[in-house]
């Protein structure tokens, strides 16, 4: 690992932010806890996506496939009278295992083809959840045992768990960013052929990143399912969500350690604001804002050279170029 002083400072800032959030848990009201929990969950999903989409440059739309798989695994395992921690672990393992199988096949595709292939996993997973009544409860959905305790206690509990998961995702990203694994992923993003020529086991690296990403997403799904205590196919395998995740990371900055956090925070704040003020036009306005932001800040909040953030066209071309896969 290469750790220079700036990078150590960044890690410290990140951890301090998370610690601050954890302490604030005891002074937040229920609504704030709910927003905080969904923010932490989105941050986990964004960090998970960032490994594959950001560092490795594979535009995955399978994040929510693994999220849903985690949610269902959690529900099924909890309904077998297992402890909640066991169910979460099972969710992460299921996500990793399925990512291993899917990754071995899907990662042969590149660019748009890969994106379409990963969307297909979501559609297939939703249909399976819809039709395998015995296991998933089908379209009716699956009830999951509710956690006992006052609403404040339960709200705080899930907030802290989701936050802990976000810290884990952040630390995974920190390690990936500074080790030969992350270095290899960056090489793969830029030129896969050249990467194998310098001795990188391209297939194994790609699958490993996909598995890591799948495990994180599924863990988030597991915690989510325990929290809401009821899941159904169209909620667990939501197409819009799987597209929102990459959008958030792009807002924040792809292939960086803070991009996913900033992106998801920005998005949640935006979402809450637009939702509160323009309830009828909510989706449309949010869409326009996203298009605008991506147009003017193609590298995300972190990938932008702020002093020259006006006359954008040449920078847009440059910042957009490295993100495409060969």
């Amino acid at each position: 690992m290469i750790l220079d002083r700036t990078f150590l400072l960044k890690i410290a800032v990140g951890l301090a932010l998370f610690a601050l959030a954890a302490f604030s848990a005891f002074s937040l009201d229920n609504y704030q806890l709910q927003v905080g929990t969904s923010l932490a969950m989105l941050a986990v999903l964004c960090y998970a996506w960032n490994l594959v989409g950001g560092y490795m440059g594979y535009p995955s739309l399978a994040t929510i496939t693994f999220f849903g798989i985690g949610a269902y695994t959690d529900g099924i395992v909890q309904n077998l009278d297992q402890a909640i921690g066991v169910a979460w672990l099972a969710a992460a393992i299921a996500g990793a295992a399925i990512a291993l199988l899917l990754g071995a096949a899907l990662l042969r595709l590149k660019g748009h083809y890969f994106a379409i292939g990963t969307i297909a996993t979501l559609e297939v997973a939703r249909e399976i959840a819809n039709n395998w009544d015995a296991l998933t409860g089908g379209a009716i959905g699956l009830n999951i045992p509710i956690q006992m305790g006052s609403p404040e206690f339960v709200g705080r509990f899930f907030f802290l768990v989701m936050l802990a998961l976000a810290v884990a995702a952040f630390l995974v990203t920190v390690v990936v960013d500074r080790t030969r694994f992350g270095f290899g992923l960056r090489c793969i993003r830029q030129n896969e052929q050249a990467a194998s020529m310098v001795g990188i086991d391209v297939v194994r690296y790609k699958v490993a990143a996909f598995v890591l990403s799948g495990a994180l997403s599924a863990a988030a799904g597991g915690v989510y399912a325990s929290m809401v205590a009821y899941i159904e196919p169209k909620d667990a395998f939501n197409l819009v969500k799987t597209i929102e995740i990459p959008v958030m990371v792009m807002l924040g900055g792809m292939g960086t350690i803070f991009g996913p956090l900033i992106g998801s925070a920005f998005y949640v704040v935006l979402n809450e604001f637009v939702w509160a003020n323009f309830i009828n036009w909510h989706s449309g306005i949010l869409g326009l804002i996203i298009v605008g932001v991506i147009y003017f800040l193609p590298g995300g909040v972190l990938g932008t050279r702020w002093p020259s953030a006006k006359g954008r066209m040449p920078m847009r071309a440059r910042a957009a170029q490295p993100r495409t896969t060969a």
Binding site: C187, Q190, N191, Q193, A194, M197, P322
Partner: peptide, 9 residues
Amino acid sequence: FQIVQPFAQ
């Protein structure tokens, strides 16, 4: 490589 293949970024 005949056509050079650097990691451009």
